Deep mutational scan, measured.
Amino acid sequence: NQASVVANQLIPINTALTLVMMRSEVVTPVGIPAEDIPRLVGMQVNRAVPLGTTLMPDMVKGYA
């Protein structure tokens, strides 16, 4: 099963992502693939992302 990117903490709206904010986990539904974590660093979320939430492509500005 493919691992997805999951929020390791509450990520406030418009926050630029850092490695410490994300972890990989096998979840359903599948979100952004864990191998894209390096690409996500520095990108901003367009909404608040609660701890444990799977990051979906539409949550990250410029990802989709």
Rank of each mutant, 00 (worst) to 15 (best):
Q9W: 07
T28S: 09
Q9E: 12
N8Q: 07
V20N: 06
I11H: 00
T18C: 03
T53Y: 11
T15F: 09
T18I: 10
V60T: 03
Q44P: 06
A3F: 11
K61R: 12
Q2R: 07
G42D: 10
V5M: 03
A7K: 00
E25Y: 14
G52C: 02
S4F: 04
N14R: 06
N1W: 14
S24F: 06
I13C: 02
L10W: 11
K61A: 09
V5Q: 02
V49P: 01
S24Y: 08
V26T: 08
S4K: 03
A16Q: 05
R23D: 04
P57Y: 14
D58C: 02
T54Q: 07
Q2P: 15
D36K: 12
P33C: 02
V45F: 02
L40D: 00
G52D: 06
A3V: 07
T18K: 12
V60S: 01
M56P: 01
M56L: 10
L19G: 05
V49Y: 02
A64N: 12
R39F: 05
I11E: 00
N46C: 01
S24E: 13
V6F: 04
V60W: 02
Q44W: 13
L17F: 15
S4T: 08
N8M: 09
L51R: 09
N46I: 13
V6L: 07
A3C: 02
G42M: 14
T18L: 06
M59L: 09
V60D: 00
T15W: 15
L10Q: 08
Q9P: 01
V5E: 00
V20F: 05
D36P: 01
P33H: 11
R23K: 13
T15S: 04
A3T: 14
M22E: 00
P12S: 15
G62Y: 14
T54C: 01
Q9L: 15
T53I: 13
T28G: 13
L40M: 15
V20S: 15
R39N: 14
A16I: 03
A16M: 15
P57D: 04
R39L: 08
L10D: 10
P57C: 02
Q2M: 13
V41T: 06
G42W: 03
T54P: 15
A48D: 10
M43Y: 11
V60E: 01
T54Y: 04
A34F: 12
M59C: 02
N8P: 03
M59F: 09
T28V: 13
A7E: 00
